[in-house]
Design a binder for these strands. Structure first.
Length: 423
RNA sequence: GGAGAGAUGGCUGAGUGGUCGAAGGCGCUCGACUGGAAAUCGAGUAGGCGGGCCUAAACCUGCCUCGAGGGUUCAAAUCCCUCUCUCUCCGCCA
């Protein structure tokens, strides 16, 4: 959520920032309602002040046995007025909330300006895409031939956009989860968490999925609960409504979870293989930091994700997303794109974002810089570390052999019971 | 699913209609004492929304907040209703 005080004090700055993201105008209504609400509050507060004073006067008079009927009648009238004013304020609050909850975050100054993904800027590249002396197959063909991925039977169970992993395919998925968690916990200093896969609507509002993106998620029938689209949601919500001590920061959290996405509006995109699924696995990183350190922490977190790809020997590039391609809650985002021979291009496998105080405001998640200081909002960051299904796809494609077998990257073998090749 | 108990500040815990944003304790901050520390003593210590104020801090000030929402009343932490969550016992269950 944007800072309403900032929107009030410097509407032109906020509007310019929103325009860079492709959002036109829109603050006029906010400013008008905001002004209206404050004048209503001023009037109501005045009347309440009168009521409070008069009430305690009645208390005093009663103890002395005096009659107070006149005053009581007057207060009752004032009470009606107050009620009417409060109701108006409340209605306006609902509208203000609706506006604020639907406005995206403001991009950081360092974010390149642009309107779509073609304006994203490459920051660096790692590894050389392998040159094949045979015609490389897409991962769905490799996996199906090895009988480690089964799309037909997944469709029988659950329909399109699901995959059954079998045998060493299932083992590979599990090995990757363990490798990634071990790296983040043992080498990068994250605390491992195993959260619920279903969360309340409040959590979804907290991280920004709701109210705007309800159609992207799976809702549990008959309950105000949603399947998580990413572990960012439960991890970032973990400390919601809390005031943390400065010594607790930064907090590093990592979790493996399944992720569930309705993929509304993506018909016909990435229909083959495991790239775009209704259910997929991901290891996620989340950080809660002070405002002073959050951008340094974003760089570090991005490196943590990159290291996973480096250990697996998968070529990738790092992209700085432009203003027009930023996610709703992000102030700045780096995407990691892994080389996919079947696409002959780099494909997103991780996304690392600094949301600054945008989510913290929605979560009411604060900290005290000093034990006696007023609470401030923390900065929240999240990043995939990394998407597991897409990593399986990348391994199958990048490590395939001419005979259809797939070599297991060295670092993964101890997680595969020593197996070095799938054939 | 059945029966019962509970939800109060950073924590603990008192408070059954007005003097209560809230005793006491712990913790924390500042100060005194000390060569320094511990102990001790003193003072302070909730959050939010407005206004004073052009911006920020500090300060002053009004209002709101005792799980959430509604009601009764001149006045609600306290009385009534609804909901949520937690705990205990019984049943069921991986």
């Amino acid at each position: 959520m944007l800072d309403p005080k900032l929107a009030r004090a410097k509407p032109e700055v906020v509007e310019a920032a929103l325009r860079a993201r492709g959002i036109e105008g829109g603050l006029d209504e906010f400013l008008k309602l905001d002004r209206e609400r404050r004048s209503l509050q001023a009037r109501a507060d005045e009347l309440k002040n009168f009521r409070n004073k008069a009430s305690s006067e009645i208390g005093r008079a009663k103890r002395q046995g005096k009659s107070t009927d006149d005053l009581q009648a007057r207060i009752r009238q004032v009470g009606e007025e107050i009620k009417a004013l409060d109701e108006q304020s409340k209605e306006i609050d609902v509208q203000l909330d609706r506006i604020l909850l639907n406005l995206p975050n403001i991009p950081h100054d360092s974010v390149p300006v642009g309107s779509s993904e073609v304006d994203n800027v490459e920051v660096r590249r790692w590894g050389e895409p392998r040159r094949f002396d045979f015609n490389p197959l897409p991962h769905w063909e490799i996996g199906t031939a090895l009988d480690i991925l089964d799309f037909e039977r997944a469709a029988k169970l659950s329909g399109a956009r699901f995959t059954v992993y079998k045998g060493l395919g299932a083992r590979l998925e599990r090995a990757l989860i363990n490798l990634m968690l071990d790296m983040h916990v043992d080498q990068h200093g994250y605390k491992e968490v195993f959260p619920p896969f279903m969360v309340s609507a409040d959590c979804m509002i907290g991280t920004g999925q709701l109210p705007k993106f309800a159609e992207d998620m799976f809702k549990v029938e008959g309950r105000e609960m949603y399947l998580i689209p990413t572990a960012e949601v439960p991890l970032t919500n973990l400390h919601r409504e809390e005031i943390l001590a400065a010594e607790q920061l930064p907090i590093y959290l990592t979790a493996y979870t399944a992720c569930f996405r309705a993929e509304a509006g993506s018909h016909g995109r990435d229909t083959r293989g495991v790239i775009r699924q209704h259910q997929f696995n991901k290891v996620e990183m989340v950080k809660l930091t002070t405002p002073e350190t959050s951008y340094a922490e974003l760089e570090k977190m991005t490196r943590d994700a990159e290291e996973v790809l480096q250990v697996l020997g998968l070529p990738y590039r790092v992209m700085a997303l432009c203003t027009g391609d930023l996610g709703f809650s992000a102030a700045k985002t780096y995407d990691l794109e892994v080389w996919m021979p079947s696409y002959q291009e780099y494909k997103e496998i991780s996304s690392c974002s600094n949301c600054e105080d945008f989510q913290a405001r929605r979560l009411n998640l604060r900290y005290r810089s000093e034990p006696t200081a007023r609470p401030r909002y923390v900065h929240t960051l999240n990043g995939s570390g990394v998407a597991v299904g897409r990593t399986v796809a990348a391994i199958l494609e990048n490590y395939q052999q001419v005979d259809g077998s797939v070599v297991i990257p060295e670092a993964l073998r101890r997680y595969m019971g020593g197996i070095d090749i799938i054939r």
